[in-house]
Amino acid sequence: MDGEKIKDSAMDLVLNVADYYFFTPYVYPASWPEDGALRQIISLLVVTNLGAAVLYLGLGAISYYFIFDHNLMKHPHFLENQVWREIKYAMTSLPVISIPTVALFFTEVRGYSKLYDHVADSPLGWPGLFLSMISFLFFTDMCIYWIHRFLHHKLIYKLFHKPHHIWKIPTPFASHAFHPVDGFLQGMPYHIYPFLFPLHKVLYLALYVFVNIWTISIHDGDYRVPGALTSVINGSAHHTDHHLFFDYNYGQYFTLWDRLGGSYRHPSALMGKGPHDLIRKLQAEGKLGNDEANVTDFCEPRSKET
C-alpha cells in the first residue's frame, strides 16, 4: 500500500483492510496518501457507519427472529408498528452518533491511545491481556451506570433519554434506538478506556462487537438467567424492569452498581409478575387488547417518568 503505515489504533486494522481492498484501488486517487488526516476522517465515517448498521441490523435481526418471543407483542404496552419505529429511530440516530465517535477513533488512529499490537507489548503479558478484558467490563459498567443514572435526572431526562423509554416492552431493535446524545454518552466509556489503560487492538475490536451483542441481548425479551447469576448479571429480565418501572436496574452487565446505588430491583419476570405473566392473565380473563388499566396488578406506577 502507498503511504506511511497508519499509527496505533484498533481502527487501523479495519482501515488497512478497507484501504487495501476498496478505498485505495477504487475510491481515492493515488495522489491522496493513506495517512492523510482528511482521508482518514472520511474513511472512518464510512467504516463506522457501515459497521454500526451491519452490527445493529444483522445482530438485531438474528435476535429478533431466533430469540425474541413474539408473544410479547401482545402486551398492552407494546406500540403499534413498534419494530419499524425502533429501527427507523436507530438508523437516524446512528449516523449522528458516529460524528463524535469518529473524532475519538481519529485520535486513536493518530496514536494518542494506549492500544498495542502484540501481547509482548502488554505490561503484564498474557495475564495483562486477560486482566484488561475484565477491567474493561467493570470500568465501562461503572461509567455507564452513572451516565445512565444522570440521564434519568429530571432536568436531563426529557431532553435526551425519554425517547428510549418509549419502548416499555423492547425488542432487540430497541437496543440502539436512542437519542444521539444519549447514545454517544452511554457509548463513550468504551472509547475512553483505551486512552486510560493499555488494551490489545484485536481484543478492543472483539470487545466492541461483544458490547453490541450484549446491548441487544438485554433488549431481547429472553428473561432466562441461570439461578446462580440472577443477583450478579444484569440480563434482559432486569433491563425490561428498567423500561417498565423507570428508576431501577441502570447497570449494563452487572448488578453491582445498582446494589451499591440502591437502585436494584429483582426482575418481576422471575417472580411471576413479568410481561409474559400479564399476557397470560389477560388472555385468561379475555381482556387482552383493552386499555392499560388492565396492567395495574402487575406494573407499579411510573410516577417519576413524566
Results as ranks from 00 to 15, higher is better:
residue 250 Y to L: 02
residue 212 N to K: 05
residue 214 W to C: 02
residue 280 R to K: 13
residue 199 L to R: 04
residue 283 Q to V: 14
residue 233 I to G: 11
residue 284 A to C: 05
residue 211 V to K: 13
residue 216 I to D: 03
residue 257 W to V: 10
residue 264 Y to V: 06
residue 237 A to Q: 07
residue 288 L to E: 07
residue 223 Y to T: 09
residue 235 G to C: 07
residue 244 L to I: 13
residue 282 L to A: 08
residue 286 G to Q: 05
residue 201 K to L: 01
residue 293 A to I: 10
residue 244 L to H: 04
residue 198 P to C: 00
residue 212 N to E: 09
residue 255 T to K: 08
residue 217 S to C: 00
residue 223 Y to P: 02
residue 295 V to D: 08
residue 210 F to S: 03
residue 196 L to H: 04
residue 194 P to S: 00
residue 200 H to P: 01
residue 283 Q to M: 13
residue 255 T to Y: 01
residue 197 F to Y: 12
residue 212 N to R: 11
residue 290 N to Y: 11
residue 264 Y to N: 00
residue 202 V to P: 08
residue 202 V to L: 13
residue 252 Q to D: 12
residue 211 V to Q: 12
residue 276 H to D: 12
residue 208 Y to F: 15
residue 204 Y to K: 13
residue 242 H to L: 03
residue 289 G to L: 06
residue 293 A to V: 11
residue 293 A to T: 15
residue 295 V to T: 14
residue 225 V to P: 00
residue 290 N to Q: 14
residue 235 G to S: 04
residue 225 V to F: 00
residue 196 L to T: 06
residue 196 L to Q: 07
residue 296 T to S: 12
residue 200 H to K: 09
residue 210 F to D: 06
residue 265 R to F: 05
residue 261 G to H: 07
residue 285 E to G: 07
residue 208 Y to D: 14
residue 211 V to N: 12
residue 252 Q to K: 15
residue 280 R to I: 02
residue 268 S to M: 15
residue 204 Y to P: 07
residue 296 T to W: 03
residue 246 F to C: 11
residue 214 W to S: 09
residue 261 G to T: 11
residue 297 D to F: 12
residue 221 G to M: 07
residue 218 I to N: 10
residue 230 T to C: 08
residue 279 I to F: 04
residue 248 Y to S: 12
residue 203 L to N: 03
residue 252 Q to M: 15
residue 270 L to S: 00
residue 274 G to K: 02
residue 259 R to N: 05
residue 221 G to C: 10
